[in-house]
């Protein structure tokens, strides 16, 4: 237990902040994922062949390629790409991107692909009559979307989104390869310096279990909220 002491003697506070980092990365990635889903869900539902193709390739490629490969692509290629764009605008100095942003972005792209599928499925399973009814009532598009489609979509999407959240939370362990100090990286450092990998990796596992367990409890509450009236 000495190993987990807070302060300079143990790894307690380091692991605590690493856990906060994992939560921060997961939430940021989830939000970035939602942004991607907002762009790509309409594309996937679109009747235009080209737009449809773009939407489909995004979800197929990201869901068919290992997460680690996507992370390596962004980690090694990200700053190069940004520097290339910057050089077009006449900025030629070296740009280093923050590990937090690269990591969240990489996980966000992955989580976005799963969210897109969830939203697409939810919208498609809404009864056609709902779309027709709001058209007949003469509702404007934004009102129709926010007041009619959204609430029904969320009810169907929340259970599946909780799966996406679990996947995202676990995927954040992979960005430890880029050096961002989250649970996995911190355990790696601690295991290296104390030569006690069994303890620290097991503790990391416990932390992840705790996070998934707590988020499950929270999401269940959300689910009951959106199930009201059904």
């Amino acid at each position: 237990m000495d190993l987990l002491a807070f302060g300079n003697t143990g790894w307690g506070d380091e692991l605590f902040f690493a856990t906060l980092m994992t939560i921060a990365v997961s939430i940021t990635a989830m939000i970035i994922g939602f942004c991607f889903a907002l762009i790509f869900t309409p594309l996937k539902l679109s009747k235009n062949k080209l737009l449809n193709f773009i939407g489909n390739s995004y979800t197929t490629i990201i869901r068919g390629v290992p997460e680690l490969l996507v992370i390596y692509l962004l980690f090694f290629g990200g700053s190069g790409a940004i520097m290339y764009v910057a050089s077009i605008f006449g900025y030629n100095k070296y740009i280093e991107i923050n590990a937090f942003l690269t990591g969240s972005f990489a996980i966000g792209i992955i989580s976005g692909a799963y969210s897109t599928e969830v939203f697409r499925g939810a919208i498609q399973s809404i009864d056609k009559g709902q779309f027709e009814a709001s058209k007949v009532l003469g509702l404007k598009k934004p009102v129709h979307f926010i007041k009619v489609i959204m609430p029904q979509m969320l009810r169907l999407a929340v259970p599946n989104l909780s799966n996406v959240w679990q996947i995202t939370l676990k995927d954040t362990s992979l960005i430890s390869v880029t050096g961002l100090v989250e649970i996995m990286r911190q355990s790696y450092i601690a295991a290296g310096s104390t030569r006690d990998p069994l303890f620290f990796y097991s503790f990391a596992a416990v932390l992840y279990l705790l996070l998934t367990f707590l988020s499950m409890k929270l999401i269940n509450k959300l689910e009951t909220k959106y199930r009201r009236g059904y």
């Binding site: 676990k170 362990s173 996995m184 355990s187 990998p197 069994l198 990796y201």
Partner: peptide
């Protein structure tokens, strides 16, 4: 099933590869 589905695969590999050798 709860244990293995609730933790990342990376942790599981690390426990088995780095951790078990300690026993």
């Amino acid at each position: 099933s709860y244990l293995f589905r609730g933790t990342p695969l990376l942790v599981q590999i690390f426990i088995i590869y780095f951790g078990l050798g300690q026993i």
